[in-house]
Structure formats: C-alpha cells, structure tokens
C-alpha cells in the first residue's frame, strides 16, 4: 500500500505484504515437503494390497484371548510396569526441579545458566524413551532398573520445561515482599515461588505419570522390564492369543491410569 494512493482505491487487507509473503513461503515449503516425501518414501504396493487380509488373519489368530495367561505371565509384569512408571516419574521430578529452577530467568538471573539448563532439557526430550532404554540396557543390563532410568531421563525435559515456565509466570509481588524482609534465596523459593507453582507442579507430575504409564508399557521391547517383555516374548513365540491378552492388559492399565489422574485432578487441583 503506497501512502500516495487516492483514498477511494485503498482496499482493506488483513495482512501486510510481508506477512502474506511469509505465509506463502511456509505453504510452499509444506507442499514441496509433502510431495517430495511421498515420491521418495519406499512404498511397496503389493504389501499394501493384502494388508486387510493380514490384519484379518492377525485378529483371527488373536481370538480367543488367552485370559488364563494373566495370573502366570502378565500380572507380575503389569505391576512392574506401574512401579517403573511411578519410580521413574519421582526420579525425574527430583532431577527436573533443579534444572527447571536453573532454566527460569527470574529465579536464576543468569543467561548462561538458563541456556545451559535449556540445553539439558532439550537433549532429554529429543532422545526417545525407547532409545534412552536402549542406552540404559547397554549400561545396566536388561531389567527394570534400565527402564526406570529411561523413563526418568526422558521425563526430565518435559517436567523441567513446564516447571521452569510455571516459575517464570510466578507473580513478582510475593517474592519482592520476601526480598524486602531480607529472606535468603532458599526461603524466597520455599515461601515465595513454591506456593504459587504448587498447583502447576502437581498437575505436571500427574500428567507425566499418565504418559509414563503408557511409555513404560513398551520399554520391555528393548529389554528394559515391564509388560513389554511379556509382549515381546509372546510375539517372538507367535502366541497371538497371549499377545491379545497382553495388549488388553496394557489397554486396561492405560485407561485406569487416565481415570485415576482425572479423578485426582478433580479432587485436589
């Protein structure tokens, strides 16, 4: 829009040319990326044609579900999965709280420390829980210890990021009041920040526990303990009715975890 244009010919436009150009570039890049990916990705049509048949075959093999397998092969593993998820979450919170504090600029007013903390958080989130599990299985050997540490290290990024953001949103007033009364750093933290971020903290912890229950169910596929091991064993032996049983158990535990979290949230938060 040039400023010299006569008033009558000026047309209202929602976006500036710069905005429109940037949006256009994004759309263009998206279309190119999708088309390129579709052309380059390896798709074998023959495999696609018989997919419905294969799925049907899978389902008939899974039926009837081997309910009797539950007490001998699934229950222990299921309990282990829940312990892995819970302990992993607790451990991750222990690690994430200091990193979250370091990431919040109003708690630690030092840009270098903030960026260092953010780097730790991003690295933790970038490596998938299954890949963390592979690493810890290589270090500690197969078992629940590797799984718990994988869950913990993976969750640090998530918990730390959200906790740090909650801290940064904390109201200055209370903290200034404490500062004025001469409270040391730790007291400001405990009596100034903590009461303000407490609801956010519990909500993050519960949310992550819910995610971790889902994640810990698959860690066993790489040998990191829990119900995934039962799944892996049953699949390797082609015992599909047992696979169905394990899948059902995972489904049930995930649904129960979600209900528990929603209920606690309703009551407490």
């Amino acid at each position: 829009m040039s400023a010299t244009a006569p008033v009558a010919t000026r047309v209202w436009q929602r976006f500036t040319p710069r905005e429109r150009f940037r949006r256009f570039v994004i759309y263009l890049v998206m279309v190119v990326a999708i088309v390129q990916s579709a052309r380059m990705v390896e798709i074998i049509p023959e495999f696609l044609y018989d997919a419905p048949q294969q799925v049907q075959d899978l389902l008939t093999r899974m039926w009837p579900i081997a309910w009797s397998h539950y007490p001998e092969g699934v229950h222990e593993a299921l309990v282990e999965t829940i312990h892995i998820a819970s302990l992993g979450t607790i451990l991750s919170i222990l690690m994430a709280v200091p990193v979250g504090l370091m990431a919040a600029n109003n708690v630690v007013p030092n840009r270098t420390v903030n960026y260092l903390a953010k780097l730790i958080l991003v690295s933790s989130r970038s490596v998938n829980s299954l890949i963390w599990a592979l690493l810890f299985v290589a270090v500690f050997g197969p078992g629940a210890l590797a799984g718990t540490l994988a869950i913990a290290f993976r969750s640090v990024g998530f918990v730390g990021k959200l906790f740090g953001e909650a801290l940064e949103e904390a109201n200055r007033g209370t903290i200034e009041a404490l500062e004025a009364s001469g409270a040391p750093w730790f007291s400001r933290l405990l009596w100034g920040y903590w009461p303000q971020v407490k609801p956010a903290f519990w909500s993050i912890a519960l949310f992550r526990w819910d995610i971790n229950v889902r994640e810990s169910a698959v860690l066993g596929l790489v040998g990191a303990g829990g119900i995934g091991m039962a799944l892996d064993t049953a699949m390797n032996l082609f015992q599909w009715p047992r696979v169905a049983m394990v899948l059902f158990a995972i489904f049930a535990v995930v649904v129960i975890a979600e209900i528990v979290v929603t209920q606690i949230r309703k009551r407490i938060l």
Partner: peptide
C-alpha cells in the same frame, strides 16, 4: 489414543510389512 505408537507400529508391521509404510 489408547495405544502407544510403538505398539501400533508392531501391528502395522504385521499388516503392511517392514519399512516406512
């Protein structure tokens, strides 16, 4: 939403074979 992507991936591997599909 109920199953982890890895479990869904296992089922898809069975249905359409190994690979990006």
């Amino acid at each position: 939403r109920s199953f982890h992507p890895v479990i869904v991936a296992i089922i898809f591997v069975k249905a359409v074979g190994f690979g990006a599909m």
